[in-house]
C-alpha cells in the first residue's frame, strides 16, 4: 500500500524515542529474567516473595507495554486493520477448541498469522494487545504479555527467514518458538502465581517437584513439555491458512513481498 500523503512524516527524535523504548523494553525483560533465574528467590508466599511477585508482574508488563508503544506508531494501516481480526481469531478459535475438550490451546493463531503476514514487529504488537484485551476477561494472563509478544516476534522472524517456503518448516519453527516462549514465561508462572493455573499442568509441575526440582525448574520443564507441541500445531495451521489466501491478498503485504516469505508459492 502506498504511504499516506495526508499524514506528516515522522521526525528523527520520534524514531530515536521509539528505538530507546524498544531497547529499554527488551533489556528490562532480559534483565528481569536473568535476575530471577540467577537468584531463584525462595519463600514466594511470604515476606519478600510478595515483592518478587509484584516486581516480576510489573517488569514483564512494563516491558511488553514499552515494546508496544515503540512498535505501534510504525505499523501501516493495512496491519492495523489486520490486528483486531487476529485478536478476535485468538479468542474465538481458542474458545472453540477449548469447547471440544481437545488438549490444545490454539489461542495464539491470530498472533502468528499477523507475524507471518506483517512481520515480527506487528506480530509482537499483536501478542501484547491480545493479552491486554484478553485480560479484561481473564486478569491472570496480564503478566504473560511479554511471552505473547515473543510468539508474534518469533513468528515474524521465522517467516522472514523462510519458514513458510516449505510446509514442513513451519512446525519446526513452532517447536523452536515454543521452547523459547516456555522458558521466558516460566518465571511469571512460578514467581507471580506460584505454579500453573490448570489442573493438568499443575499435576506435571507437582510430579517434577516430587522428584526434588525447585519450583522454577519444575514449571520450566512443564512449559517445555506443553508449549513446543502447541506452537508447532499453531504455526502449521497458520501456515496452511496463509497458503489458502488468494495471492492478491497475501501479496498486498509489504513484508510478504520484500522477504519473499512464500517463496515460489507466492510467485505462481
Amino acid at each position: 500500500m502506498s504511504p499516506n500523503l495526508l499524514l506528516p512524516e515522522e521526525t528523527s527524535s520520534q524514531v530515536l524515542r521509539r528505538r530507546i523504548l524498544a531497547t529499554a523494553g527488551t533489556l528490562l525483560l532480559i534483565g528481569t529474567y536473568l535476575v530471577l533465574v540467577i537468584t531463584q528467590p525462595t519463600g514466594i508466599a511470604e515476606g519478600l516473595g510478595q515483592g518478587v511477585a509484584l516486581v516480576t508482574f510489573a517488569a514483564y508488563l512494563a516491558a511488553a507495554v514499552m515494546l508496544l508503544v515503540a512498535v505501534l506508531p510504525d505499523l501501516p494501516v493495512s496491519t492495523l486493520t489486520l490486528i483486531p481480526v487476529a485478536l478476535a481469531l485468538n479468542i474465538i478459535l481458542g474458545q472453540f477448541v477449548g469447547s471440544v475438550m481437545v488438549p490444545l490451546y490454539l489461542d495464539s493463531i491470530g498472533t502468528v498469522l499477523v507475524g507471518f503476514l506483517a512481520g515480527r514487529r506487528a506480530g509482537a504488537a499483536t501478542g501484547v494487545l491480545s493479552t491486554l484485551i484478553w485480560s479484561l476477561f481473564a486478569p491472570t494472563v496480564l503478566p504473560f504479555a511479554a511471552g505473547a509478544a515473543l510468539v508474534g516476534f518469533l513468528a515474524g522472524t521465522a517467516a522472514r527467514f523462510g519458514a513458510l517456503r516449505r510446509p514442513y518448516l513451519a512446525p519446526v519453527a513452532g517447536v523452536v518458538a515454543g521452547v523459547l516462549v516456555g522458558v521466558v514465561s516460566a518465571p511469571v508462572a512460578a514467581f507471580v502465581f506460584g505454579g500453573t493455573s490448570g489442573v493438568g499442568t499443575g499435576a506435571v509441575v507437582a510430579a517434577f517437584r516430587s522428584m526434588g526440582d525447585s519450583l522454577l525448574s519444575a514449571v520450566t520443564k512443564q512449559a517445555l513439555i506443553s508449549d513446543p507441541g502447541d506452537k508447532a500445531i499453531v504455526f502449521l495451521i497458520a501456515a496452511l491458512l496463509i497458503y489458502a489466501l488468494p495471492k492478491r491478498l497475501s501479496g498486498s503485504f509489504d513484508f510478504i513481498r520484500r522477504y519473499r516469505v512464500l517463496g515460489q508459492r507466492g510467485t505462481k
Binding site: G195, S197, T201, G202, A203, R209
Partner: peptide, 8 residues
C-alpha cells in the same frame, strides 16, 4: 488455579 496450587 486453587486445584493446581494444592497439587504443587
Amino acid at each position: 488455579t486453587f486445584a493446581s496450587l494444592l497439587l504443587i
